[in-house]
Write a protein that binds this DNA or RNA. Structure first.
Length: 1096
RNA sequence: GCGGAUGUGGCGAAAUUGGCAGACGCACUAGACUUAGGAUCUAGCGGAGCAAUCCAUGUAGGUUCGACCCCUAUCAUCCGCACCA
């Protein structure tokens, strides 16, 4: 009987499927354990060998914990929204939903072959409306929350509104600043829009105009972590800064808690450090400097207020708002020239020429508050507008950038640190004693920092300030394939959709081209975007009462369904064909901008109300009332409607039919007067020339979609309760499963996904929706599997011909067959001789993947180097796991990936070694079955030697598995099987235990042999072997004996002997005698159970 | 430039955390069994040397009876951040 892995693996995969072997219940008395993999983006290229590495690692752990008696949640799903599917759709016209489904099917079949213990009944897909309904729902929670700075947590926005209504927003001390502070009464007097604008500045998910990373090629905005060196992470397209309205997450509010949270999670130090760097907290001070010839003040941020006497110049970012104001007449031209230069440079250029020194003097001077010195004010690119105050005080003796700048522009340098500054470079020390520093003289810099700030605060010209490098996270993308925002814009106000209207599903589109003015493809679908209030809103839903509206007569337009709004739109359109005689008279006078050039529309819906005429520019509504407006009921309704319109800052003039008919000139005069009244010009509209909020009177959907990290920020919660349509995750389920105990994935998500999901978790915790505020207890980063590349270069007589080539086993199968064998000797190494022969035959037409050039001393022919690079399809070094599974089986593949090296380390992929693991499994098989004799295992009692092998293995493998040292665990299996084979051990007693140890690693073969041994139940639920130390105790040990630290011999000594006896035995030994050469040892060191060292 | 990590045979890697450096596997060499070997088994395999022995964990120092392991400097590679004041 041979080890026929194909039939064994097929059989058990089938069996496990039939028995729902991996189904996990939320309802059990067992302790829980949650093992999670970072779910994949289902790309079109399918799985490569790097993918399963983490999945296998987590799968082994999940199975191990299950054997140890835990109820293990080990789910899998797909991060199925994202750019590539949409790019593909742009190129081929295939709907992303279709290609995504296809890719998922491929992934699934590949994953199934490797036999992961995923509970597929819990699968989630972020692009599934049943899933993104809750992504949208959580977005609404973010939208409806603000960060309370006193409680340091998220609270419902209603609490803030209540505060504004009762107390307003007033400063704790000092005078209120107009535009910033307001009283409760002032709040109440604000228009709806003004109030909403203020609230928007506090919401956790908020909309704002800002500078964003705009990628023209992708037609979208990218987050900071999606931009690498000025180009897009995906595709490497140029990225420019652009002003646009965007959604953001107020992650900066959580900066401190995200930092603190790192203390209590088990992430690798480098991972934590990356997050800390990203958050970039720094302590310092804001100092304001008087300007010499100007009333305004210049505020700078510095971490080193102790160096204030060393300030030799100031530098503003070129974009700084004061630049124009302070530039003197004679410097104006130079400054303008410089600004033009700065603007001409792309982000990419600025980044790539980091060390270039540029700048320009403004002509202005600031005054040092302590010694009154005049300090020239410059502008320069090296100061960033977005950090701190966008202005710095430059201390050239202490800061290298300032030093370089001063040298370049010949600005004299003041030395305040004595010998620490040598004049050749800056010294950023904090250990110097200050000189030339007024009241700080003689102080250690470290100590002077606090003293300087105290003094500044006392003088009222500075204060302590903490700064963060992290910015609020851009949360909208001008793309199609993402979660639509459950937001409707009306009159520049963002209204959230009602919960019952979720999910807001993606509409179908024909084309994926960007919309107008940088908007996403959704903007092209007018019937989806444009929402018109409905006539039936006269009986709004929910009713004003239900909404808690103050005025019960004001309809609740914004909660109406989209269908109803559409009806209104159609109704208004129909109305235009049926004007009354009087309406027609007036229309003829108003149309074509006849009245002072103002544009009027007729029968144009405003929410659910369709006025006769409207000038949107001036918010002026003209009504021509027929007879029925005199009826009591209609009068009442008109009044309510009018109140609502006035509240929303519309002006209404009513004319009777008679007025229009009899004196049209008087009517027009009244209208013209009203139009020209200054006060009816609405400020909120005039200050907003930027696109994206719609035009007054229009009701539109938000057309951008959420970024990739939206769905992945909370998916770990959905797995706990994946089919719930009442809530995102039942509280009972999230209380039971709680945090993810083990999270496995790549380091590439260090600052993106991990920070976002940590923030979401904290918000959900603050709002009382879950009971923990860190999502992942322990994070295990699998290393990258790299492909190995070899390069060969050829410089022949005919000119430079460069041939690049990858080592045979790193080539894809097809290329290997075609070319690979031609350049390696029979040891698989590159061979110059063989290569030379190929050259003679003219066989060097190889695909060139990469060009490297290096000259050897003697030659035309140069073998350059071997190097590792990231696995990727484009680099041509991918090995498909399917091929390997097909050839060796899943068990071999799983064990081999683990045997490659430590899980965390990145390592080159090399399939050569897989044979060794495969041999091991065959050797294991032969302990049970003999080719000729068939079954050879027996029920005989195991010997002590055999039990020792077993228990030694239990100890090593259990410990290694627990600590993720899978590579050494695999070698321990090999040692065990080698030893048992040497002992000719075929005893069930031993083998059975070994199978349980093995099943997390190689589930098929262990299940097969387990059942062959006559066990009824599945090995998946067997009990993990228990170590019995008594089998490991030795009576004798081979002690290594060293002379002066060098091992000279081994002597077998009973383990219970103490130093005196041991010394006697050792000194009697002839090898030791020889080294002693008759001398007496100075000292003998004896470590029990370890070694003996004799010092001569 | 800053931060994090890693340097051990031809290759992937071990080393109970200061105690026999190179477990385990690949590759390679020799042999056995075979019609055959891409099956299996046996032996060898860091370098030098016939050998005793000497030299070897990036390099140079140090601590220690003893260092891959701890300390100091230095070089190289990888990853992350990058004019963040």
């Amino acid at each position: 009987m041979e080890y026929n892995f194909r039939s064994i693996e097929d059989k058990w995969q089938q069996r496990w499927k039939e028995t729902n072997a991996y189904k996990v219940s939320n309802d059990t008395a067992k302790p829980k354990y949650y093992v999670l993999d970072m779910f994949p983006y289902p790309s079109g290229t399918g799985l490569h060998v790097g993918h399963p590495l983490g999945y296998i690692a987590s799968d082994i752990y999940a199975r191990f914990k299950r054997l140890k008696g835990f109820n293990v949640l080990h789910p899998m799903g797909y991060d199925s929204f994202g750019l590539p599917a949409e790019q593909y759709a742009l190129e081929t016209g295939q709907h992303p939903a279709v290609t995504t489904e296809k890719n998922i099917a491929t992934f699934r079949s590949q994953l199934d072959k490797i036999a992961f213990s995923f509970d597929w009944s819990r699968e989630v897909k972020t692009s599934d409306p049943a899933y993104y309904k809750w992504t949208q729902w959580i977005f609404l929670q973010l939208f409806n929350s603000y960060f309370c700075n006193t409680e340091k947590k998220a609270l419902p926005i209603s609490k803030l509104i209540h505060k504004y209504e009762t107390k307003g927003a007033m400063p704790r001390n000092g005078d209120p600043v107009p535009g910033k502070h307001f009283t409760a009464d002032e709040w109440k007097a604000f228009s709806k829009k003004e109030q909403e604008d203020i609230l928007m500045k506090r919401r956790l998910a908020f909309s704002s105009y800002g500078e964003v990373n705009w990628c023209e090629a992708l037609g979208t905005v990218l987050a900071n972590d999606e931009v690498v060196n000025g180009v897009s992470e995906r595709g490497g397209h140029p990225v420019v800064k652009k002003q646009m309205r965007q959604w953001y997450l107020r992650i900066t509010a959580y900066a401190d808690r995200l930092l603190e949270g790192l203390e209590k999670v088990a992430f690798s130090e480098s991972m934590k450090e990356m997050q800390r760097n990203w958050i970039g907290k720094s302590q310092g001070a804001e100092i304001s400097f008087e300007l010499a010839a100007n009333n305004s003040k210049l505020v700078v941020y510095t971490t080193r207020p102790d160096t204030i006497f060393g300030v030799d110049f100031m530098v503003l970012a070129p974009e700084h708002e004061l630049v124009e104001q302070i530039t003197t007449a004679d410097q104006k031209e130079a400054i303008e020239k410089y600004l033009t230069y700065v603007k001409s440079r792309s982000e990419r250029e600025r980044m790539s020429e980091v060390k270039q020194v540029t700048g320009c003097f403004t002509g202005a001077y600031a005054i040092n508050p302590f010694d009154g010195r005049k300090i020239p004010v410059w502008i320069a690119e090296y100061v960033l507008a977005g950090y701190g105050t966008g202005a710095i005080m430059a201390v050239p003796c202490g800061d290298q950038r300032d030093y370089t700048f001063a040298k370049h522009f010949n600005i004299p340098i003041t030395n305040i640190i004595g010998d620490h500054y040598k004049g050749e470079e800056a010294n950023a020390t904090k250990d110097a004693v200050l000189e030339n520093s007024g009241f700080l003289n003689g102080l250690l810099m470290k100590d002077a920092i606090g003293i300087a700030i105290d003094k500044l605060e006392e003088m009222g010209i500075g204060k302590r300030k903490v700064n963060y490098r992290m910015r609020d996270a851009g949360f909208s993308r001008q793309r199609y394939w993402g979660e639509p925002f459950p937001i409707i814009w009306k009159d520049g106000i963002a209204y959230p959709l009602d919960e019952k209207d979720l999910p807001l599903e993606l509409p179908h589109v024909e084309k994926y081209v960007p919309g107008p003015e940088g908007e996403g493809p959704l903007a092209n679908i007018t019937e989806w975007v444009n929402l018109t209030p409905s006539l039936s809103d006269l009986t709004p839903d929910p009713s004003p009462n239900e909404r808690g509206a103050e005025d019960q007569n004001i309809p609740g337009y914004f909660t109406s369904s989209e269908k109803e709004w559409k009806n209104t739109f159609l109704f208004a359109k129909a109305n235009r064909k049926h004007l009354t005689e009087e309406e027609d008279i007036l229309w003829q006078e108003l149309r074509n901008r006849k009245v002072d050039g103002f544009k009027f529309r007729r029968q144009h819906p405003v929410a659910g109300y369709i006025p006769d005429f409207i000038c949107l520019e001036k918010n002026l509504i003209i009504e021509v009332d027929g007879g029925y407006h005199n009826e009591a009921e209609q009068k009442e309704f008109d009044a309510a409607r009018e109140r609502w319109l006035v509240e929303n800052e519309f002006n209404i003039i009513r004319f009777s039919n008679d007025e229009v008919k009899n004196d049209i000139q008087k009517v027009l005069k009244t209208i013209a007067e009203k139009l020209n009244e200054e006060k009816i010009l609405h400020s909120a509209w005039s200050d907003s020339p930027l696109p994206g909020r719609g035009v007054r009177g229009e009701v539109k959907r938000e057309t951008s979609t959420m970024p990739g990290y939206a769905g992945s920020s909370w998916y770990f919660l959905r797995y706990m309760d994946p089919h719930n349509d009442k809530t995102f995750c039942d509280r009972k389920a999230s209380d039971y499963w709680s945090q993810v105990d083990l999270y496995v994935g790549g380091t590439e998500h260090a600052v993106g996904h991990l920070l976002y999901s940590r923030m979401w978790t904290k918000v959900l915790f603050d709002l009382g929706l879950i009971s923990f505020d860190e999502p992942f207890k322990k994070l295990l980063n699998q290393g990258m599997i790299t492909g190995r590349s070899y390069f060969l270069m050829l410089d022949n007589a005919a000119g430079k011909k460069i041939v690049s080539y990858k080592k045979e086993d790193a080539l894809s199968t097809s290329v290997r067959l075609k070319y690979g064998h031609q350049f390696v000797d029979n040891s698989g190494r590159l061979s110059k001789k063989i290569f030379d022969q190929q050259i003679e035959k003219g066989l060097f037409e190889m695909p060139v993947y990469e060009i490297e050039w290096e000259k050897d001393t003697d030659g035309e022919f140069i073998f350059v180097k071997e190097e590792s690079e990231k696995m990727s399809k484009s680099k041509f070094n991918v090995d498909n796991p399917d091929d390997l599974v097909e050839r060796y089986g899943a068990d071999t593949f799983r064990m081999y990936e683990m045997f490659l090296g430590p899980v965390e380390a990145s390592k080159p992929w090399d399939t050569k070694g897989i044979e060794g693991v495969h041999r091991f499994l065959k050797k294991l098989w032969r302990l049970f079955f003999d080719e000729l004799k068939g079954k050879i295992w027996s029920d005989e009692k195991a010997s002590d030697a055999e039990l020792k092998v077993l228990h030694r293995s239990i100890k090593k493998i259990e410990n290694d598995t627990e600590t993720f040292a899978y590579n050494t665990a695999v070698s321990a299996f090999m040692v065990a099987v080698n030893d048992l084979a040497d002992l000719k051990c075929n005893k069930k007693e031993v083998l059975e235990q070994l199978l349980v140890l093995l099943t997390p690693y190689a589930p098929h073969i262990s299940e097969e042999l387990w059942s062959a041994l006559g066990n009824n139940g599945s090995i998946l639920d067997a009990a993990y072997p228990v170590l019995n130390e008594k089998y490991l105790i030795e009576s004798e040990k081979d002690y290594p004996v060293s002379i002066n630290g060098k091992v000279r011999t081994n002597i077998s000594i009973a383990t219970d002997l103490e130093q005196p006896e041991v010394e006697k035995i050792v000194l009697a030994n002839e090898v030791v005698q020889k080294w002693l050469e008759g001398k007496a040892p100075k000292k003998i060191i004896f470590v029990k159970n370890r070694m003996v060292n004799i010092v001569i």
